[in-house]
Simulated scan of single mutants.
Amino acid sequence: MLEQFGDRIWIADGADTVEVFGFRYPTRMAVIRLADGGLFIWSPIPLVDALRTAVDALGPVRHIVAPNSLHHLSVADWQRAWPEAKVYAPPGLREKRKDIAFDDDLGNEPDPAWAGEIDQVLMAGNVITTEIVFFHIASGTVLFTDLIQHFHAGWFSGWRAVVAKLDLMVAPEPAVPRKFRLAFTDRRAARHALDQILAWPARKVLMAHGTPVTEDGAAFIGRAFRWLAS
């Protein structure tokens, strides 16, 4: 169920999709093993027995991260399964999920528990959601959640296929959907975050909805955000 994606990083895809306004989205998460042996869980997917067994085989879960205010549906289940783990909230999620006891908030600075191993940037200025973009140094992987997406041409049908094409969800390569582009009301803040992201020596790019990019990651990110840099 877990597939190794690089040095000390694994990914898992959910068996089911999540429906948002009639659009089906696949789910994907990442597990990063830190130097102390503890696990950093990014965007947890629905927890099933096989996944729990695979995760436990890698080490103790110590950090459960919701990278934006849209990716939170499975956080409570993971918190119940590993009550000793710390749970981190991105901007806006504490208000949205008052039922979850968060331990800390995510911002521009990495938590001391993963500083030096995982860097992060708060992609501010978007009215849909404020996403925390992470960079796993050992594997050279940048982790986007919803800001970059990609679906194959047959994923949607009917009017949804038309909307998805117009939204660039089915572009020739992974792209920032038009709705997210238009939702950046503070482009200066977004450009500042993008400058930090482009400074990372990225080799790979992981996203929650789309086939991962496994080479020339920095160049790919530059193309995906060319509209913002101009």
Rank of each mutant, 00 (worst) to 15 (best):
G140P: 00
I148N: 03
F102Y: 09
T141V: 05
D146T: 02
G116D: 11
F135T: 01
A101W: 04
M169F: 11
P110F: 13
A115R: 15
T145N: 08
V142I: 11
D103P: 02
A138N: 09
I118R: 05
P112K: 11
W159D: 04
A101N: 12
L147A: 13
A153H: 10
F151Q: 04
G116V: 09
G107Q: 09
V162L: 15
G140F: 01
F144P: 12
S157K: 03
L166M: 14
M169P: 12
L147H: 15
I137W: 00
L106Y: 02
L106Q: 09
V142M: 11
T130D: 06
W155L: 06
G116S: 14
A115W: 12
A115S: 15
K165W: 06
V162C: 06
F156C: 01
G107M: 05
F134W: 12
V142K: 08
T145F: 07
A115H: 13
G140S: 08
F144K: 08
V127W: 11
V121T: 01
S157Y: 08
P110D: 09
P110R: 10
M123F: 15
P110C: 07
I132C: 07
M169S: 08
D146A: 05
V133M: 07
W159Q: 06
T141F: 01
A124M: 10
T130G: 01
V162I: 12
N126D: 06
V121P: 02
V163N: 02
D103W: 03
A101R: 14
L122W: 09
A153T: 14
N108L: 06
G154H: 07
L106F: 03
M169H: 05
Q120Y: 09
G107H: 06
G125V: 13
H150L: 07
L168S: 14
V127S: 00
D104T: 14
H150V: 08
V133Y: 08
A101V: 11
F151G: 01
A101H: 12
S157Q: 02
L168G: 05
